[in-house]
Design a protein around this nucleic acid. Structure first.
Length: 375
RNA sequence: GCGAGUAUGGUGAAGGGGUUAACACGGUGGAUUGUGGUUCCAUUAUGCUAGGGUUCGAAUCCCUAUACUCGCC
């Protein structure tokens, strides 16, 4: 089935909204945070652990699975869900962003037809097109596929942003033309760089193609926060109320709140798992670096009151020891805490929308989060 | 006891008279937003075993002491 968005409540003072996302694998509340499992696994975590922290949709990646193990192997395994033993909804990114992030400093050639670039694994020449990306995703059999887009760098000239935005629209149309999977949904992606008129135009034209959901791409690529929030505003203004809105790649706690207030329903980000592997943890009082010497003999949890497995069983001193010793269990414990932190944040945001006090929640959160990380 | 050799930061070490003592690990901070899974950046010896001497100038040369190492009694 196609995903369906059910709007249950609009906030009275902001554009925030509370709703439900109906999927092949159950119905979930929004706004939601989606952990990233690029290579068919949320790094260090099992599906059971994800369920335990009330995770819903997870992300995986077309580009990575295309190269390794290959989409036919996933297809022959019975699809991505079976392959990775995950019976929840899966969204696959199209590979558009990987052209931007993996090949950032390497040779790549973006043409009307598609993108020529080099494999990050063995340097071999690759050619990815909008059609191929969709065909791979059809085979992977994720629940939500993404259109193949170009993520415009920041800053970019108006001329480049305009040409790229128009090309992304043509790519979206081409991808949609070959899309062929009844069980799967397809989302369009709004680009436009940091230019208001291009963002508006991109949103309007993408919506005309009638996708199952819409995402806002091209943010958090080096622009300042004010610009980023405006990019969201400029894009979301023209998105329909009856389809889910997904802000791609954003997962800083404050950015999630700013996104929700602007009407975003879905977020994904590598931040919780990536910083976990490098020893950082989110707390209500800001991000902490567990490797800091001051935690050497701190026998309290990362966050008192946190309901995650990590905080209910382990101390900062122990986790610090694991991270300093490069033990993978430490990475796992921090990943559990960080993902649970963002999921809990979205749970709180949903409650605040239902209670009509999201602005109060936002102000209190930001004040506490930015206030320091002495806890 | 005799002979030879070595002594550089928390560690392994480079430098064999000429500005701020290489590099690596470790330590201490920081970064990270649709993930190239032990990453990236900054910082970390006012000092080269101790004392004395030569020299404009010594970690580098000389003397003494001390500690290790290897031989021989």
């Amino acid at each position: 089935m196609k995903v369906k968005y059910e709007l249950l409540k609009n906030d009275t003072k902001t554009k925030a909204r509370y709703g439900l996302l109906h999927t092949n694998y159950g119905t979930y509340e929004t706004p939601m945070f989606m952990p990233v499992g690029t290579q068919a696994t949320v790094k260090t975590l099992s599906p059971e652990e994800l369920k335990e922290m009330n995770s819903a949709v997870i992300l995986s990646n077309t580009y990575h699975l295309w190269l390794r193990p290959g989409c036919d192997i996933v297809y022959n395994a019975g699809g991505l869900h079976k392959f990775m033993n995950y019976n929840g909804p899966i969204l696959t990114d199209s590979g558009g962003f990987q052209v931007f992030s993996l090949a950032k400093n390497k040779s790549k050639d973006i043409t009307e037809e598609g993108v020529h670039f080099k494999s990050h694994i063995d340097g071999s020449n690759l050619f990815l097109t909008p059609e191929l990306s969709i065909q791979i995703q059809n085979k992977l059999d994720s629940d939500i596929a993404m259109s193949f887009d170009e993520c415009i760098p920041y800053p970019a000239t108006y001329e480049y942003a305009k040409a790229s935005t128009e090309r992304t629209l043509r790519w979206a149309k081409r991808g949609k033309g070959v899309f062929n999977n009844e069980r799967q949904s397809l989302f369009g992606i709004v680009q436009g760089g940091a230019y208001e008129d291009l963002r508006n135009y991109s949103a309007i034209e993408t919506v005309k193609m009638d996708f199952d959901g819409y995402s806002i791409g091209g943010t958090s690529v080096g622009e300042d926060k004010t610009t980023m929030y405006k990019m969201i505003d400029d894009a979301i203004k023209y998105l329909p109320i009856d389809k889910p809105r997904y802000l791609m790649g954003v997962g800083d706690p404050i950015d999630i709140i700013e996104g929700v207030v602007r009407g975003v329903d879905m977020f994904d980000c590598v931040l919780p798992t990536r910083i976990a592997r490098h020893g950082n943890a989110f707390t209500r009082h800001g991000k902490i670096n567990i490797k800091n010497a001051k935690y050497k003999e701190d026998f309290t949890p990362i966050e008192v009151g946190c309901d995650c497995y990590t905080c209910t069983h382990y101390t900062k001193a122990y986790i610090r020891h694991l991270i300093v010793s490069s033990e993978s269990f430490g990475q796992r414990l921090l990943s559990i805490h960080n993902i649970r932190f963002l999921i809990k944040l979205t749970e709180d945001l949903r409650e605040s929308i239902k209670n009509d006090n999201i602005l109060e929640y936002k102000d209190a959160f930001i004040k506490e989060y930015s206030g320091g990380n002495d806890k």
